[in-house]
């Protein structure tokens, strides 16, 4: 009984989530067409990088990469906070 209910719920959820997927038009993105063409046409001469992906990540969207680097820095801070060594009753820094 429990398994049947679980399966039914999963099936219904999958069906609901598939509705927007079926309405997508793969292969012909109507929205971002101009953006792609601009990057392909001008990316090499503007950034000088043969790898356009790197040109976009580090030049056109430098803020995004700065955010990624900051997220990594914050992750290290959090891990250092969780895994710090504690003496009985007092705390001291990891070395």
């Amino acid at each position: 009984m429990k398994k049947a209910v679980t399966g039914a719920v999963i099936l219904i959820l999958c069906a609901v989530l598939m509705i927007p997927v079926l309405s997508l038009s793969f292969g012909s993105p109507a929205v971002s067409q101009g953006m792609d063409d601009y990057f392909i046409a001008h990316g090499q001469e503007q950034t000088g990088a043969n790898n356009i992906v790197t040109g976009i990540v580090f030049d056109y969207r430098g803020f995004d990469t700065l955010g990624e680097a900051t997220v990594l820095f914050t992750a290290v801070l959090a891990v250092g906070l969780v895994f710090r060594k504690l003496k009985r009753g007092e705390e001291y820094e990891y070395e």
């Binding site: 950034t47 000088g48 990088a49 043969n50 790197t54 040109g55 580090f58 030049d59 430098g62 990469t65 680097a69 990594l72 820095f73 992750a75 290290v76 891990v79 250092g80 895994f83 060594k85 990891y94």
Partner: peptide, 30 residues
């Protein structure tokens, strides 16, 4: 070529190697 992109690549490379290694140092030190 590519202006500041190689400099930023090297900077991010140094940062990521330090960050991932220090995370595993923290976890494996005990």
């Amino acid at each position: 070529t590519a202006g500041v992109i190689p400099i930023m690549n090297i900077a991010v490379g140094i940062e990521v190697l330090g960050a991932l290694s220090i995370i595993l140092y923290y976890m494996l030190s005990g």
